Amino acid sequence: MSLQLNTTQKIGAALLLALVAYALGAPLFKDGDSISQNLSAIMSAPGGQFWFGTDHFGRDMWLRLADALRLSLMMAALCVLTAATIGVTAGVLAATQGGWVDRLLDGVVTILLALPGLVLVLIFAAIVPGSFWMLYVAISLIQWIEYFRVSRAITQRMITSPAVQSSRLMGFGGWYLFKRHYWPAIAPQLLTLAAFGAANAILMMASLGFVYVGIQPPLAELGLMIVEHFPYYSDAPWLLVLPLSVLALMVLSCHLLGRRTQDQGEAA
């Protein structure tokens, strides 16, 4: 199945690729790390030795932004991959098996939907403060629900189709039915779900850092950087503008990538 992107999605993909290139390539252009402090160069303006300036501890913002961006992209990718795998698998199983399997999974989803997503993530974050992997588990636990609901609805509609019924009569098993019938119907919806899911994962991680319950210092994380730099916005405005801009560009690229035209929606 070929993936065709409209103009808006291509702009989003190009912007996202540029951010990935900066996150992976920035350390290749400068020596050092994002943690080392240089107290003789506190809040240096961008330019010269420090291309993006330094923060209130003299740490290089070029390297810190790259580390924070890399951390956010990793969180988004892991959450999307995990949530999609669990959600699609559970959704197809619920639709094809029916009975107690469907009722059980639907009950689990109902319970999770009854809890505010951010509150659930905060609970997990409180268990192991500052743990990247605990945040990943918590965000994935919330995001798989959307994939489940979409996959279940599509599969339930496909089960009664003549094509699926014909394959069943010919003796094909569940794996063939999934590859031949269910997956081609589900896959076109996944790009939109994944794009918005990635944006939500990035924002949720930044929100936790903003209230000091996410990634802890001295690691670089966009939400944490924003709240740490806020007191210095009048003396060094670039400290606040840079992480805010990177966060906004990441979310914008995901939203553009997930935007579908009316024709695409009808075709899917």
Rank of each mutant, 00 (worst) to 15 (best):
L3M: 14
D67P: 07
D31P: 08
W133F: 15
G98F: 02
M61A: 06
L239F: 00
F29I: 13
L257Q: 04
M158D: 03
P188I: 08
S131A: 02
I142H: 04
Q97F: 13
L191Y: 03
Y182Q: 10
R259F: 09
L19N: 05
I186P: 01
S207G: 15
A198T: 09
Y176P: 05
T7A: 07
M43K: 06
I142W: 05
R70F: 09
D106R: 12
H181L: 01
L63V: 03
V213T: 14
L135N: 08
G87V: 05
V227S: 00
M74I: 13
Q9T: 10
T261P: 12
L122G: 03
A14W: 12
L242E: 02
E146Y: 11
F57W: 14
D55F: 00
S166E: 10
L118E: 11
T89V: 14
T7Y: 10
A18L: 12
K10D: 12
H56T: 06
A268T: 15
I202E: 08
A77M: 05
S234W: 10
M225I: 07
S166Y: 13
P243C: 08
V211Q: 04
A248T: 06
K30V: 07
A185S: 09
R149L: 08
P116M: 10
P27S: 03
R103A: 15
I142R: 02
G107M: 10
L16Q: 08
L224H: 05
I202C: 04
R152F: 04
S234M: 11
R70D: 05
V251A: 06
A138K: 09
A248R: 05
L193T: 12
L239T: 03
S72K: 00
Q4R: 14
A23L: 08
L169E: 13
M61W: 03
L19S: 03
L247Q: 01
W144Y: 11
Y182D: 04
M61S: 12
L5P: 09
L240D: 00
L118T: 13
V119D: 02
P116I: 09
L191K: 10
R157P: 14
V227A: 04
L169Q: 13
L69S: 01
K10S: 09
S234A: 11
P129E: 07
Q216A: 06
G265F: 07
D31A: 12
Q262V: 15
L191I: 15
I145V: 15
D263Y: 09
L71D: 01
A220W: 07
V246D: 00
I11H: 07
L15F: 07
Q165R: 11
